[in-house]
Nucleic acid binder design. Structure first.
Lengths: 171, 171
DNA sequence: ATTGGAAAGTCAACAAGTCTGACGTAATAA
DNA sequence: TTATTACGTCAGACTTGTTGACTTTCCAAT
């Protein structure tokens, strides 16, 4: 195609990291590592007859105490019927406290009870340990790249959610 | 603790990338990006009344034509009963061809039909496009870090599976 | 050569978790 | 007052996971 110069399609650096094989390996790495990532809490959840949905709910309620059901629906992207079943069991089991909103009394503000916080920690700590260990093992440069690629994979709306979470942690 | 020198706990570089906040952001990035990653095929699957399990089966059969049910079970880590149901529908619908093994006639060797290959491509191509675009956007250094962190998150057995797949692609 | 156990795969029944659709109630907004 | 919003619930369906029981095939020890 081109008479002379660098390899076709390359600008300044070579583009070997964009070969089909590299893409495939990236996809498989994502699949296998995500499964590993969820395996620890999954084992605990199985024992207590809960599912991943319970963990996710506990996680985000702990993340932002007092968030409303609608806000949680927005984060989780499930139907309210589906979330409701999960929330009901969590409330019945004394892990989540649902309080009527002061500002708007139609809203339910969700909080973790002491017991709820304890389970949330027990479920999430193995994941934190896994990520911490992977980070330590890979080093700060690799971690920066990891984050960069993950963010680039999100669509606009998901990225918005992600940044919103990141931002309200600063307060 | 230490009389003099760098900040406590730091070796040569600082360890700010290991703060709780960084770990938390990593976990959330993983959650949100994985959901984005699966969203494209999920939409297609919904239309044809298939689920993610069907995509996974198609993916790995395409990846290694002629693999046995047992081999597929090992990769997917589900019960054979669960896989069987998915395989049955794929075979009935003419997407997968199951041939009795020549070497061992208890085995079933799995292949994609032309139609199966077509659907697999349709499901996986959006994911490849997403990863390719993210890779291009983030650059080769970031990609290396991405891969390094993901691999560090896998447990021994998963890592073995991942490397086995990587290796038999070289042939 | 026979046979008894193990391995590969299938079928049936059940549980969990997701979805859609419809409806009811209470509170807020127009 | 009326329309809209937030939340909860019931019913029915589907996917995907499970366990248990079964058939067919292979292999190895006798």
């Amino acid at each position: 195609m081109q008479k002379e110069g660098s390899i076709v399609g390359n600008h300044s650096e070579n583009l070997l990291f964009l070969t089909d094989d590299q893409i495939r390996q990236g996809i498989e790495a994502l699949y296998f590592s995500y499964r590993a990532f969820t395996s620890d809490p999954d084992l605990i959840l199985q024992d207590i007859n809960y599912g991943r949905a319970h963990h996710r709910a506990l996680y985000f309620i702990n993340r932002e105490p007092g968030l409303t059901v609608t806000a949680l629906l927005d984060v989780l992207r499930v139907t309210k019927q589906s979330l409701n079943r999960v929330l009901r069991t969590l409330i019945e089991d004394g892990l989540v406290d649902s309080r009527v909103g002061r500002r708007d009394r139609r809203e339910r503000l969700l909080f973790l009870t002491e017991k709820g916080q304890e389970l949330e920690r027990r479920l999430s700590e193995p994941q934190r340990a896994r990520v911490r260990s992977a980070y330590r093992n890979a080093g700060p440069q690799a971690v920066a790249g990891f984050r960069q690629v993950l963010e680039s994979m999100m669509d606009r709306d998901t990225l918005r959610q992600f940044h919103a979470m990141r931002d309200d942690a600063q307060q």
